[in-house]
């Protein structure tokens, strides 16, 4: 493989990784606060793809993007209110089953509404413009994805570390019960968390599907699981960790496909997960947790 091909694949990988990173943040935030693997997160990402298809059919693209992000955010909050909030005092297993149920519902609902036939993802002209850099060529979205990811993460970090809401989020993720006793409105914090996660999944969805060209009701499942792995890899609950994990998995996956092992690219992600859980369960940047009796 020549240097150019490697760089070309690397570029694709970074772009894919950026989209993964944005979705992984949603997992990491929710897990940090509720200790819940939000299995429905991948399907929220898929639904955002469909929202974009329909809103772009009736609005110009800047409005369409805003509408898509707004609807996705509202859906994320709605899911939390309806499916997770009633189970707040239930065992963790029940909430996880509820999350799986929501994922099942969203997949079936979108199969019903939009049929299982892949639907073409609309092109936003400026995103698809091709740029030449020496021998490398890349569409604008490929370059935009990692940049946008980094910018959004920086904004998110400022939000988490500097604002009052961010402080509340950190407090809740540290100790749910104590935070409640200190007068933090838990439900509001959780809603904000889901809103941020869904918003980022919406952005990730636009970037991801612009490159993939089509959406099916099941196109959220595997990316969703992979992004959870990315979050675990970086240390669950840790935002920069999720970003690093997202980029790592995106790049390795693209390289595996380039080398002709496309069937193993999904398997690799899970292999990485199992190895990581065994060797360093707290992830790359995770804090050590002490087992309490």
């Amino acid at each position: 493989m020549s240097m150019t091909t490697i760089l070309q694949h690397g570029l694709t990988g970074i772009s894919l990784g950026g989209a993964y990173a944005l979705i992984a943040i949603g997992y990491t935030l929710v897990y940090g606060i509720l200790r819940l693997i939000n299995f429905a997160h991948g399907d929220i990402f898929m639904m955002a793809g469909y929202f974009m298809i329909f809103s772009l059919a009736s609005f110009p693209w800047p409005v369409a993007i805003v509408v898509t992000l707004l609807v996705t955010t509202v859906m994320g909050i709605g899911i939390e209110r309806m499916a997770y909030k009633p189970l707040r005092s239930a065992p963790r297993m029940s909430i996880m089953i509820s999350a799986i149920g929501v994922s099942y519902l969203l997949q079936n609902l979108s199969t019903y509404l939009f049929t299982a036939i892949p639907r073409g993802y609309p092109e936003i002209p400026f995103l698809k413009r091709i740029y030449q850099m020496g021998e490398l060529s890349a569409s604008f979205v490929t370059i935009l994805t990692p940049v946008l990811t980094i910018v959004l993460v920086v904004i998110l970090m400022i939000l988490v570390n500097k604002t009052k809401t961010g402080m509340a989020m950190r407090a809740v993720s540290k100790d749910f019960e104590t935070a409640k006793l200190m007068g933090i409105n838990i439900n509001r914090v959780i809603s904000v968390t889901f809103a941020i996660g869904s918003l980022l999944a919406g952005v990730g969805s636009i970037l991801y599907f612009t490159d993939r060209m089509s959406v099916t009701p099941f196109s959220g499942t595997l990316p969703g699981l992979k992004c959870f792995v990315a979050a675990v890899f970086g240390g669950i609950g840790n935002i920069p960790g999720a970003v690093v994990g997202g980029f790592f998995i995106g790049i390795v996956e693209t390289l595996l496909v380039a080398l002709g092992y496309s069937t193993f690219s999904d398997a690799f992600t899970f292999f990485l997960l199992i190895v990581m859980l065994l060797v360093r369960p707290t992830g790359l940047f995770g804090e050590k947790t002490v087992e309490k009796v």
């Binding site: 200790r35 819940l36 693997i37 963790r92 297993m93 996880m96 699981l225 959870f228 792995v229 675990v232 069937t263 193993f264 999904d266 398997a267 992600t269 899970f270 292999f271 997960l273 199992i274 859980l277 065994l278 369960p281």
Partner: peptide, 23 residues
């Protein structure tokens, strides 16, 4: 290897295993 993990980590690891088998 896997049974050292707890609750949801076990869930996601076994889910991963089944995907590996499928691959």
């Amino acid at each position: 290897a896997v049974l050292r993990l707890k609750s949801d980590y076990l869930a996601i690891a076994t889910l991963g295993l089944s995907e590996i088998v499928r691959a």
